[in-house]
Design a protein around this nucleic acid. Structure first.
Length: 233
DNA sequence: ACCCAGGGTCATA
DNA sequence: TATGACCATGGG
């Protein structure tokens, strides 16, 4: 790491994924994600929030709830244009309507939550990645927050944070960064359940931190990551 | 007016 | 394998 001066000493013992986690947790506290009432709602939200601000997703989900369409049978059965109209606020509504229906068909064909819950981690992940419209991040959102499986969700904020901290190379592949961060938590000796909890909070904290302090443009003032903050001068 | 947002697919080289 | 175009609404 290339920081120097008094602050660097303070930062040094936190300049690891675990140190970052602890700094963020100390600052923001537990987040208890995902903001949803059911696992299936998590899955819908994960697809709707692709490259989209969460506030817009909330409107779309409110529409679905109001229309009684927040269930896989309903989503899979309705007319695609009608669905697109309901989720319009979330953007990319034609694409996402198709993706939601592809996902719901897959979900129902395989017996829904109860049956899928019996699948092993890796086969479940591979199956999710095979669903049209479900990429690595969406799959890991679903795995972690709907199925409580120990996968680290790597989003744009996560990459930006750890690249700017100098812990990983710019342009690191999704899977490589995920492996790096998962390994960092494993090395702390947490058991499976605690890893899930840690991954849950870690991703949420990264998002909250990015949204409240370290957006691309604004400078970061009083930041819990000190000189390690991606937006620090 | 411009940038950004809790990505993924598809065509192209 | 690695870019680039495309998808589209809403807030700052």
């Amino acid at each position: 790491m290339v920081v120097a001066g008094p602050v660097a000493v303070v930062v040094a013992d936190r300049l690891s994924p675990i140190g970052v986690f602890e700094a963020l947790f100390d600052e923001y506290g537990p987040q208890h994600w995902w903001p949803a009432e059911t696992p299936f709602e998590v899955m819908v939200g994960a697809i709707l929030t692709q490259n989209t601000a969460w506030t817009n997703v909330e409107r779309a989900i409110a529409n679905l709830r109001r229309c009684g369409a927040l269930e896989p049978e309903a989503l899979a059965g309705i007319d695609r244009r009608t669905l697109a109209d309901w989720i319009r606020p979330a953007g990319y509504f034609n694409v996402k309507a198709r993706r939601l229906q592809h996902f719901c068909r897959w979900y129902l064909d395989r017996g829904g939550y109860a049956v899928l819950s019996s699948w092993q981690d890796e086969p479940l992940r591979a199956a999710l990645l095979g669903v049209h419209g479900v990429g690595p991040e969406t799959a890991d959102d679903i795995l972690l927050y709907a199925f409580e499986r120990p996968f680290f969700v790597v989003d744009a904020y996560t990459r930006r944070l750890f690249v700017r901290l100098g812990l990983v190379d710019e342009g690191i592949a999704y899977e490589a960064l995920r492996a790096f961060l998962e390994q960092a938590v494993v090395e702390k000796g947490r058991d499976r359940e605690r890893r899930v909890e840690c991954f849950n909070e870690f991703h949420a904290l990264i998002v909250v931190h990015a949204k409240t302090r370290c957006r691309p443009r604004p400078r970061c003032g009083d930041c819990p990551l000190k000189s390690g903050c991606p937006s620090a001068p």
